[in-house]
Design a protein around this nucleic acid. Structure first.
Lengths: 216, 216
DNA sequence: TGATCCGCTTGACAGCGTTAAGTGAAATGC
DNA sequence: GCATTTCACTTAACGCTGTCAAGCGGATCA
């Protein structure tokens, strides 16, 4: 097949798009670093621009606004959380699997403070009102939990009054989230002597499981 | 006793101070209303000023900056929370008392969304670094919880591995806080079917207590 | 070679929290 | 009773933020 003008066209176009994708990625990398270092709110578009050697306005050719940029990073983080859940693998006992999920969730939350803050401690919504149909990747992590809890319920492992999978999932999730988020917002309060959050999470999960399972 | 110049002086001075206190209170009232209606971040000093019929700069003669204004309101709310805890009264059984405290805490959190958000979901600090020695009123609520949990531990009501009052208090607190805060930040997420938070809190407390108390 | 595209820049806008300097009526001192 | 001081409040501005309309200039296309 001869080299047509259209093939040259696509090659050029491909390179152009690759370059554009590169600066786009540079923006994401710079933003992530600054967000982690000095927080989302304190990071300015101008600071991001300086870091990548562009003008602030350049960012707006790749992201609608600051929220869109934040959201893109957030999406990736939700993916990583889902991955962490997935890596736990297929433990047979649904209660034990739930326990491991809780610990992995806490590890993720404590290893990525800035991301976690934004993902689960920032008032509402990365959902855009204009009929945006993008799939939310954190659905994965929640679905993992929901399925594991549902399995446990169907296997008769939980007490009969805890028959609602959504409610029980929200209880387990809230237990771990509560410790991590309170720790993050109040760890500097001098009148509270905080215990190491990983240990507290472990105790919390043990307490919740013991209080939720049906007596042997 | 004759009307001395000093008595006139103090009377005038008292009236001046009263007027100043009145505008100060007007600022607080206007700020509270706007904070509740449209959030703390979205409320501008200029908007507060318009609402009370003053210039934005006037606010700075009563409060050092926006954070100081926020903190003052926050202090009052911590007092109200402590009051709610106090009103539970002296229930003999420390475990049952703990349960009631959890429910009252959730009621406060769900009845005062804006305040709660700011008190317990805003990144760190109302603590000023310059050796500020003001007593934090929320110490009250936490001390209430801590004391109740400690009583339960001393009475042998909790399992032996939960002998640390701070850790167990933080677990109970986190359990309730987790549900409320997750609900506030994610109640609009379409892929999660949230249960009524008050019911979930009740179940959460039951689960935690059952998992924490020593078997009969 | 001339026309077109498009990633990026220039220069600005409105709004934010905040402040230095000033105003004017009330309180004070003689 | 008049001059002075006090002080709650205003005027006008500063530097910062996110954001955008308009335009440049090199690569691409016909």
């Amino acid at each position: 097949m001869a080299v047509t003008s259209s093939s040259v066209q696509t090659a050029s176009l491909a390179r152009r798009e690759r370059q554009k994708a590169e600066t786009r990625q540079a923006i994401l990398d710079a933003a992530r670093g600054l967000f982690v270092d000095q927080g989302v709110e304190a990071t300015t578009m101008r600071a991001i621009a300086v870091k990548i050697g562009y003008t602030p306005t350049a960012i707006y050719h790749h992201f609608r606004d600051k929220d869109a940029l934040i959201e893109e990073l957030c999406m990736a983080d939700f993916g990583a959380l889902g991955q962490a859940m997935y890596k736990i693998g297929r433990i047979e006992d649904p209660v034990e699997r739930m326990r491991r999920m809780g610990l992995a969730y806490a590890d993720f939350a404590l290893d990525n403070p800035s991301q976690y803050r934004f993902m689960f401690m920032t008032p509402q919504g990365h959902t855009h009102p204009d009929g945006d149909k993008r799939v939310r990747p954190d659905e994965d992590a929640y679905q993992f939990l929901l399925q594991t809890v549902t399995e446990g319920i169907h296997a008769g492992r939980y007490r009969p009054e805890l028959a609602d999978p959504e409610e029980l999932s929200q209880i387990f999730w809230s237990g771990v989230h509560g410790i991590v988020s309170l720790y993050y917002t109040h760890c500097n309060d001098p009148y509270i002597s905080w215990r190491p959050p990983r240990e507290t999470v472990r105790s919390m999960i043990d307490v919740m499981i013991r209080g939720a399972v049906r007596a042997a």
